[in-house]
Design a protein around this nucleic acid. Structure first.
Ligand SMILES: [Mn+2]
Ligand SMILES: [Mn+2]
Ligand SMILES: [Zn+2]
Ligand SMILES: [Zn+2]
Lengths: 141, 141
DNA sequence: TGTCACATTAGATATAATCTAAATCGCTCA
DNA sequence: TGAGCGATTTAGATTATATCTAATGTGACA
């Protein structure tokens, strides 16, 4: 991913392109997994510039608010993050909590009446079950 | 809700019907909202028998594992719980984190190929946006 | 009645996330 | 260029949420 593209993405969302914010965003854009804030903090700090824990959290909050990053809450575990690239759904493993991408397909919206005066922003489809790694251990142990 | 029904529900899931477990389950079955563990702990203990915080968490874990109760993780907030009665979807407010029920409708499953060797247990549809209480404050505040 | 697996408990501990207040950065404009 | 100043970063404290530990209690059943 081009550095200039990231800078423009941030600018376009009204976020200043600081070295720390850039590092968090760049890491998420190239990351295939769904890292936790702690993992992002560690990874980003394996190279300069340094980005404190508070700043990692601050920037993740800002990026989520700006709609550039998605936060996935997993029961009993740390939240996970991914850059919003191509649309996709998520599979969350009951056993290990891993979050994995599932190819996008359209989701039918609820009848407008059932939403009342609520303002709908998005529909999120989450699949649950056992991931490829955990499924085998299911029957045996 | 009939006490005998609750007892049979627990028995049927292989869970012993202790006073504490009964109290947690009974509270969830009559509760219209989606309380947090802390709220369940408080409410259950407004009447006898006493149920400790650890036991509240233990029983919620057991009930979720048994498939009688659903846990809804909300980003940056305590998890919320509801008894699995009639099927329904959930709306989560971006602003206040409230979880509300949305009438059930069928969700198309992913093409089997896109799941690979994963074992699918359920599809969960979550709507996000602003709840009835928060929507008005949106534009102005 | 005795046994034993399951369940409960208080309090300690772990984990995740946020807050605080001081320092620093980096636009903007004179 | 260089104040001025709001935005940002920071270390560390603090809060919030959830789990663990080890001692104790409970009840089904032999
Ligand atoms: Mn993803
Ligand atoms: Mn519900
Ligand atoms: Zn897994
Ligand atoms: Zn709301």
């Amino acid at each position: 991913m081009d550095a200039e593209t990231i800078k423009r993405t941030l600018d376009g969302s009204g976020l200043r392109c600081t070295p720390q914010r850039y590092a968090v965003m760049a890491f998420l854009m190239e990351c295939k997994r769904h890292p936790t804030a702690a993992e992002i903090f560690e990874s980003v700090n394996r190279m300069d510039p340094r980005c404190s824990r508070a700043t990692t959290y601050n920037n993740l909050r800002d990026l989520v608010q700006a709609g550039l990053v998605r936060e996935v809450a997993v029961e009993g575990r740390a939240a996970r993050f991914d850059a919003k690239g191509m649309r996709h759904h998520h599979f969350i493993c009951d056993r290990c909590g891993n979050v994995e991408d599932i190819g996008w397909y359209n989701v039918p919206r609820p009848a407008s009446g059932s939403l009342g005066k609520r303002v709908l922003r998005e529909c999120e489809l989450i699949f649950r079950g056992l991931c490829t790694k955990c499924a085998p251990r299911h029957a045996s142990g």
